[in-house]
Amino acid sequence: MIAPHETFGGTYPFRPHFSSAPGFTMHYVDEGAGPVLLCLHGEPTWGYLFRDLVHRFSAGHRVVVPDHMGFGKSETPADRSYLVQDHIDNLEAFVLDLDLHDITLVLHDFGGPVGMGLAARRPERVARVVSVNGPTPFGQPGLGAALAGNADEAPWFRWIARAHRDGRLESVLGELGYHILSTLKLNGFENNQVISDTWIEAYGAAFPTPAEALGAIGWAKGLATGAHVFEEPSGAARAALAGVPALAVWGSADRTLNGGYFLPLFREAFPGGTVAELPGVGHYAFEDAPEAIAGLLAEFLDTTSSAVTVAS
């Protein structure tokens, strides 16, 4: 894992915090005060993805950014499973440990199903949902077809399936720290202006050895084997969350998660939700279009709460 006080040249200057409630050492950023923005990253990123959002929104919100097990500054235990259902367990324990309420979930990539798992289990704690290129599977009948159709088209998913068949998945992803940039580009990363040695180091530093890459391997292998379990909400939870204010922001240049498959699932789960598509923005939309996302998020929060303060 990344050293606790590593700031990557001051680009991630936030004080580290840790929780042992999930059964391992889970790192999180906790900046500001007020209504909670709980930001959940995916593959193969960590809390660094949300650094701009933390700067902008901690003036009026409590911005909490955990690193999932096996990512960022969190521990990578050798004896744990890294499937979606395990990350949901971890997140639930974390949220209960911090006793977070009135949560606005901010979801990206695998953070989508993990965050929706929390929402299914603890709907009373979720006030809003914001999906940024993050699927919101909620046990819908169309989920299987969406996953299959997307997997047939997306280069990343096709590579996972082929590498698993060939027995190369663990060996290749075990070296993720050395080919992090090509992985990000394959998934759909468009804003080359942000690339620097520091930026590449920040994203690759969590995976220096195969033993430290178990989180990335687990998420990919779960897709290849069909081992991920998406949380099925109760009828009461589904009905409660259907009325929650929700926003989907989707970079339409995403080569890994095609909005044509996943935005219908969002609309089904949140019939009153709002969708904004961003042309030319890729899978890592927080890197490609931070100002556009900040503006949409600020407007959404402003219209669903009494006040929001955003730093310039």
Rank of each mutant, 00 (worst) to 15 (best):
F157K: 09
L176F: 04
W156L: 11
R165V: 11
L143K: 06
L173I: 02
L169S: 00
A161D: 09
P155D: 02
L181W: 08
P137F: 04
L184V: 08
L176P: 00
P155M: 01
H164P: 02
Q193A: 15
P135W: 06
L181F: 12
L181S: 08
E170N: 15
R162I: 14
I160C: 00
N191P: 02
L169F: 04
D166M: 09
Q193L: 14
F189K: 05
L184T: 07
E153Q: 11
I180F: 00
N133W: 01
I195V: 06
A151T: 05
G167H: 04
D152P: 12
D152Q: 14
L173K: 03
D152F: 13
Y178F: 13
T136D: 03
G144Q: 11
G174Y: 07
L186V: 12
I180T: 05
P135Q: 08
Q193R: 15
R168S: 13
Q193N: 15
A154W: 06
P135D: 02
E190M: 10
G139W: 03
G144E: 15
A146F: 00
L169W: 03
D166P: 12
Q193C: 12
H179N: 10
E175Q: 14
V132I: 07
A163N: 05
N133L: 00
N192Y: 12
T183E: 08
W159V: 13
G174V: 08
F157C: 09
N133T: 07
N150R: 03
H164V: 06
L186P: 06
F157H: 10
L181H: 07
E175R: 14
G134K: 05
H179W: 11
F157E: 10
A146S: 03
G134M: 01
F157M: 12
E175H: 13
E153R: 13
G188A: 01
I195G: 02
E190N: 10
A145T: 12
N133G: 07
N187W: 11
V172C: 13
G134Y: 07
H164Q: 08
A161I: 14
S171A: 14
S171D: 13
Q193Y: 15
G149D: 13
E153D: 12
F138R: 07
N192D: 15
W159P: 08
G139D: 01
R162V: 14
H179Y: 06
V194M: 05
D152R: 15
I160A: 01
N150M: 00
F138Y: 12
K185Q: 10
A146L: 00
N192F: 13
N133M: 04
A145F: 07
T183F: 01
A154Y: 02
Y178L: 10
F157W: 14
R158L: 06
L173T: 02
I160E: 05
V194Y: 04
G174E: 05
Q140K: 06
F138H: 10
E175W: 10
L176N: 05
A145Y: 06
Q193I: 12
A154T: 02
G139Y: 05
H164Y: 10
S171G: 11
L186C: 09
F157G: 08
N150G: 00
A146P: 03
A146Q: 04
I195A: 01
N133Y: 03
G134R: 02
A151C: 02
L184G: 06
G177R: 01
S171I: 15
G149W: 08
L143E: 09
E190R: 11
A154G: 01
H179K: 07
F138M: 09
Q140G: 04
W156F: 15
F189N: 05
L184M: 13
D152C: 14
K185C: 09
G177A: 00
P137N: 04
D152G: 15
P155G: 03
